[in-house]
């Protein structure tokens, strides 16, 4: 079922809305849970955030005016709910907003991340260490790269991060650029 059809159902009432909620849960519930976990929500809290997301989706569905972008709107609600949740738990920094260029430079322009004992590590160990540090500073960007690693389409990634396809390509390119300092120390291991 297409997400726009799910939206049509959710905006209806009665059993149609029930069917829409079920379809949305079946189609996106698992991935939203995964997204929350990757962004730092604890496994025990992820279900609560998902329920909050669905509540806000239903309450806001009649205000949805987009055409053909229901999936992006669902994900926008999910991101906002997660941010609200993390803020309430004190686990949210105003310097950090998922997939927001203007407020996501927590680490600024890292000149080069110093992987501890890099030269004693294998390439994979070194890169893994750098990636962990990168994900700590840029969980949103690490997740975008994870979606790319999963083979997700640009259109799907765009829905998840709330951008156009073109902007998503640029964003991913920026992700690579921002990752670079975190794994730069591993260069010598690659070439040795």
């Amino acid at each position: 079922m297409q997400y726009d059809d799910i939206m049509t159902l959710i905006r209806a009432s009665g059993s149609a809305r029930n069917a829409g909620v079920k379809a949305l849960f079946d189609g996106s519930g698992r991935e939203m849970l995964r997204f929350f976990i990757h962004q730092g929500v604890s496994p025990t809290d992820a279900e609560d955030v998902l329920q909050d997301t669905f509540i806000k989706i239903i309450r806001g569905a009649n205000n949805y005016a987009g055409q053909g972008n229901a999936q992006s709107w669902f994900w926008q609600v999910a991101r906002n709910c997660m941010t609200d949740f993390l803020r309430k738990r004190g686990a949210y920094s105003d310097k950090y907003a998922p997939f927001d260029d203007e407020h996501s430079d927590l680490a600024g322009s890292v000149a080069q991340f110093d992987v501890p004992g890099a030269l004693q590590l294998t390439v994979d160990e070194c890169v893994s260490s750098g990636l962990d540090a990168f994900a700590k500073d840029h969980a949103d960007r690490a997740y975008a790269l994870t979606l790319q690693m999963d083979g997700a389409s640009i259109e799907h990634i765009a829905s998840v991060i709330g951008r156009t396809a073109t902007a998503t390509k640029q964003y991913l390119s920026q992700c690579r650029k921002k990752l670079e300092p975190y794994v730069a120390r591993c260069t010598e291991l690659l070439t040795s």
Binding site: C126, V127, L131, A142, V183
Partner: peptide, 8 residues
């Protein structure tokens, strides 16, 4: 290497 690290 990044792919393997992301997968893990």
């Amino acid at each position: 290497a990044v792919r393997r690290a992301l997968q893990a």
